[in-house]
């Protein structure tokens, strides 16, 4: 076991997870807004924001899927020590973590049922850059429009079309995070202008 497996958790869990959750809440309530979080560090390749999200939202009751690339021994050990979430295949996961490509196939994740649309997965997608540029977002929580670099516009559009079913995504990059819930309509503005 590597020594960094035992470090990198919250030093003061109650206030730190409260601040982190408020960032996640604001991100989910206002898709397209970018929030900075701090307080956790996990073994590579986990970003600080993804580590904070796992510590804030996951515990031994949440089934977690690690996509290839993130499914390395260091991360497994860190999750086992700090969070205790069982690691499961994509289809059973409540939370899934990885890059967009590694998380494929994206139809494998739980999208809820008509009676219980909340029983759907949350994808924590590690992205290379996170700024207010890229695809156009509209929908609940957005006054006019917002912009985020969406990894795969077609997949997000297909996901939004099955509302109220669908998974929800949180994008993480370094200490920053943003969210794209299933209620958000994503449009590729470069395509539209052609």
């Amino acid at each position: 076991m590597q020594p960094d497996v035992l470090t990198g958790g919250f030093a003061d869990p109650a206030p730190q997870s409260a601040r982190a959750f408020r960032a996640a809440l604001q991100a989910m309530a206002m898709p397209g807004t970018i929030h900075e979080v701090s307080g956790a560090s996990a073994p590579a390749p986990l970003s600080a924001a993804a580590a904070v999200l796992l510590l804030t939202l996951c515990d031994r009751e949440t089934l977690l899927h690690l996509a290839p690339g993130h499914d390395v021994q260091g991360v497994r050990d860190w999750v086992a020590f700090h969070i205790g979430a069982p690691i499961v295949p994509a289809g059973e996961a409540m939370f899934a973590l990885g890059t967009w490509e590694a998380l494929a196939s994206h139809d494998a994740y739980a999208i809820g049922t008509p009676e219980y649309p909340d029983r759907a997965a949350t994808l924590i997608v590690e992205v290379a850059s996170l700024d207010g540029k890229g695809a156009r977002l509209t929908g609940p929580g957005i006054r006019d429009e917002a912009f985020l670099p969406v990894p795969d516009v077609a997949a997000f559009r297909a996901n939004a079309r099955r509302f109220p079913l669908g998974w929800d995504a949180m994008l993480t990059c370094g200490p920053r995070l943003a969210a794209i819930p299933r209620s958000t309509t994503v449009e590729d503005i470069t395509c539209m202008s052609q």
Binding site: P13, A14, S17, A18, F21, A24, L25, M28, A29, T56, L57, C58, D59, E61, T62, M94, P117, D118, A120, T122, P140, G141, F163, P164, D168, P181, R182, S183
Partner: peptide, 19 residues
């Protein structure tokens, strides 16, 4: 307790995703 807060927080995020 923190475990309860996490459970409520997960519900809150799903609630926001499905207004």
């Amino acid at each position: 307790d923190e475990q309860t807060k996490r459970m409520i927080r997960r519900a809150l995020l799903k609630a926001l995703a499905i207004p």
